[in-house]
Design a protein around this nucleic acid. Structure first.
Lengths: 221, 221
DNA sequence: GTCTATACTACGATAGAC
DNA sequence: GTCTATCGTAGTATAGAC
């Protein structure tokens, strides 16, 4: 059984274990837990099936190690900005709004980046039917960012009650999430085969404009 | 091979074929194409797996029949309103905005409804890695509604250029889609175990408010 | 039309050589 | 630590009885 999941969490996984995780994320993202096969994962990693047993105990152990690795990857995307916000609390609503837009743009650009596909697919599956893997990812990266965002929205839109602010946060997340999760629809609506960089910029610009509108205390009835 | 996919499309499938499709959507939604097993689908339908060969030719034939059925179901949700809009074109921007909000609320309520889970999961998988099944669903239900929505947005926000209007449509769709696709996040952010009807109403109300804001020609910089 | 029986392939897990 | 070999189970597809 070796050191198991702790290895993956501390990003000190052996080269082979890391290769297995990489290949496993591809397979799990594409085919789901049941559909992925340990044989194929091992083959793609240039090793054999027994290595999975050795390093992760079982197919499920490998799956959880993937979740930890993904949490680490997504965390790395948000951590610098998130940390900066925590160390430099917004002085006023204007600053808070700027922070929120930056958080959202950060997230949207990640959703648009090619390398987020396999990570997002993995997480998307977990969203539909959460397992232990979702708990780990949520606790590690989603909860902290959501907390920060909620705090900022409270400053930016003080006239909204708590629940309405929570809904507003989900509205904004949805606008970014759709870029990855409904990618096939997005590219069709944007009338492109694949989302090129010009289209991506238009999407980010539009998202910023929409988010700015929603996060401004306008003359809302 | 029998009549194959045409049966499913015309919703005149035999009772057994319909039971197979129902059970198959559950299995495909939960485990994906590879993960689902024809044995289990047949068992859940109270028959044996040779019936699948007979009615649909193969596992893939069954999968496509599920896609057709799903397109039919989702189409039924939108068709009455969609048809009404086509027959009664909006007289002014105000009417167009009312239509758009109604379309969006319609969609959001569907995303929140329990029975949309298996259908959405099936479609979500296809969005990530589209196959022939996605083409069928897109052509049948998504394309018409998107066309209508784009036409309405052109009336409602004439100052935006074509591409910005397309982005805006995706923004709005994202706000509704997230209710189902990131359900695990939504329930945590809304601080409920499951999304009860009161929470659902708050989500719909917030979505309407946000969409109304985005669809108004405000003092946007 | 629906069933049983079966051919063939692939799965995850484990034992044991090195 | 990584390998080969193997066990028991489950997968799809097909042939043929009724």
């Amino acid at each position: 059984m070796a050191a198991m999941a702790t290895l993956a969490e501390s990003s000190q996984a052996s080269p082979l274990a890391q290769r297995l995780i990489d290949a496993a994320i591809d397979q799990f993202a594409e085919a789901g837990f049941a559909g992925a096969s340990t044989r194929q994962i091992a083959r793609a990693s240039g090793t054999n099936m027994s290595s999975i047993t050795y390093h992760f105990g079982s197919k499920e152990g490998l799956y959880l190690a993937c979740a930890d690795y993904i949490a680490e990857q997504i965390g790395a995307v948000h951590q610098p900005l998130h940390e900066h916000i925590r160390r430099n609390p917004p002085a006023d609503a204007e600053a808070a709004r700027t922070y929120l837009l930056a958080l959202l743009e950060n997230f949207a650009r990640f959703m648009l980046a090619p390398h987020s596909q396999r990570l997002s697919q993995f997480v998307a599956r977990e969203q539909q039917r959460p397992t232990e893997a979702f708990e780990r990812i949520y606790a590690r990266v989603m909860a902290p960012v959501l907390d920060t965002a909620l705090g900022l929205v409270a400053i930016v839109r003080p006239s909204l009650d708590e629940r309405a602010r929570r809904v507003l946060v989900m509205n904004c997340i949805g606008m970014a999430l759709v870029l990855r999760i409904a990618r096939a629809c997005v590219s069709r609506v944007m009338q492109v085969e694949d989302i090129d960089s010009a289209t991506a910029e238009a999407l980010v610009a539009g998202l910023r404009r929409s988010a700015l509108t929603l996060l401004s205390e306008g003359p809302n009835p």
